[in-house]
């Protein structure tokens, strides 16, 4: 009899403990990206086609910047802090080797015909008005998987 009683008591105790524990473990509030203002401009890029990309394909990029203003009118003028445009590079290219230069939030890029089959990065690099890259560099990228069909 005693064992039965003890077992039932333990089961009940476990039940109470579990249910109490349930409420206390509310998930912490998700942290916001707090560093936007202090850590410099950030770029987020997304593309409409990233898989089975063919050479010559036209890809539409959607570019979101924060902590920076894209102004096409100010290109080729004196530098201003927090204002400028971007250049789209393929993989490790730099300098004048860009695919497109602009300041629109949505832009079309043509994939070069001589691109190799494999993984490639499309990098959107922020530039100052005078067409020099930002220091420290600020860029976002999207991965393309290319293979000729």
């Amino acid at each position: 009899m005693r064992t039965i009683f003890l077992a039932l008591l333990t089961a009940f105790a476990l039940a109470v403990v579990t249910s109490c524990g349930k409420d206390d473990d509310a998930p912490p509030a998700p942290e916001e990206n707090a560093d936007t203002t202090t850590a410099g401009p950030t770029v987020k890029v997304s593309a409409d086609k990233t898989h089975a990309v063919q050479p010559g394909d036209e890809i539409t990029l959607t570019i979101e910047v924060s902590g920076f203003t894209l102004d096409p009118a100010k290109m080729e003028q004196t530098n201003e802090d927090g204002v400028g445009h971007y250049r789209v590079y393929l993989d490790d290219a730099s300098g004048a080797d860009y695919l497109i230069e602009g300041a629109d939030n949505s832009t079309k890029v043509t994939v070069p015909g001589d691109i190799t089959d494999g993984s490639h990065d499309l990098r959107v690099v922020l530039h100052n008005n005078d067409r020099t890259p930002l220091e420290p560099a600020a860029e976002g990228s999207v991965l393309l998987i290319v293979y000729r069909l």
Binding site: H51, A52, T116, D117, G118, S119, D121, L143, I145, Y147
Partner: peptide, 16 residues
Amino acid sequence: YTPHWAPIKFKGEWVE
């Protein structure tokens, strides 16, 4: 091969 996670995780190219 792809569709697969490997070419996304490992940057590389296919032999022609």
